[in-house]
Design a protein around this nucleic acid. Structure first.
Length: 261
DNA sequence: ATGCCCTATGATATAGGA
């Protein structure tokens, strides 16, 4: 089974790329982030035409997540246990479903903006809700393969950014955010490390300053999984090629192959 | 090296991205 995650930075703007990528790479499940559209506006038909069932969670111009599956979508869950609000709104940042016997979550962790911004504390609270959700799922079905994939908006180590010196007083690399990642893992998950097919092992390059060409990237799109899933992994990689050219998302897809029935 | 921002919106500016 092939599972992938991709922050597409608007499904509307990225539709042709997403359709082409699905046809070429044939994932069984694709977790999307940053749909930037409502559920009603999601382009269901062309994706269904490729054989995928779709579950979405989107409210408009910000955020939005989805799961596409050609191995079934059951027991769809929208939102996290104890998910915090931001400015009194429930943001669409997490959706889970069972696809071909694997429990898959697509997550879009809040950015944080700046370490002293309210969005940063919201980010840490959001991680606590993610941990609670992971713990509950693991308690309910400890042996069922589980993966929580998406845009975590944290670089796990200094090696996961192109130049740690450029990140003074920046989010994505603070001890608090990295502790939040460790707390999520402590619920009973491990990280599946992807390999770089070519070039540096980043998953995001800012649109500005020709960052992609300069190698100014970050690895913030992560694969977390329980042991049952991790034990079945045969390969995992970053599709850096998809970041190239006009009309690319600023994130590359991350793919994981598992030997599961 | 595959290039010096991109996206959606009460849109001709703005917020958000990370």
């Amino acid at each position: 089974m092939r599972i992938a995650t991709w922050n597409v930075n608007s499904i509307g703007a990225r539709l042709e790329r997403v359709l082409a990528w699905l046809e070429l790479n044939k994932p069984d499940v694709l977790a999307l982030q940053e749909l930037k559209c409502t559920d009603d506006a999601f382009p269901l038909m062309p994706i269904q035409a490729l054989g995928y069932e779709v579950a979405t969670l989107g409210t408009g111009r910000w955020n939005g997540v989805a799961l596409l599956s050609r191995v079934g979508i059951e027991d769809v869950t929208r939102g996290l246990i104890g998910q915090p609000q931001y400015e009194e709104a429930d943001e669409p940042r997490a959706i889970g479903a069972t696809c071909g016997g694997v429990r898959v979550w697509s997550v879009y962790v809040p950015n944080g903006r700046e370490p002293d911004h309210p969005h940063y504390s919201y980010k840490l609270e959001w991680f606590a809700a993610l941990k609670a959700t992971a713990a509950a799922e693991l308690a309910q079905s400890p042996e069922r393969p589980l993966t929580i994939i998406g845009d975590y908006n944290v670089a796990p180590t200094d090696a996961d950014v192109w130049d740690i010196a450029k990140f003074e007083n920046s989010t994505h690399v603070t001890p608090g955010e990295r502790q939040a990642l460790a707390d999520v893992l402590s619920a009973g998950l491990v990280e599946v490390m992807p390999r770089a097919l070519k070039g540096e092992p980043f998953t995001f390059w800012d649109y500005r300053q020709a960052s992609f060409g300069r190698g100014w990237g970050m690895r913030i799109d992560l694969i977390y999984a329980n042991q049952a899933f991790a034990d079945a992994v045969s390969d995992a990689y970053i599709d850096r090629e998809e970041r190239k050219g006009k009309g690319a998302s600023d994130h590359a897809p991350v793919v994981v192959d598992v030997d599961l029935p």
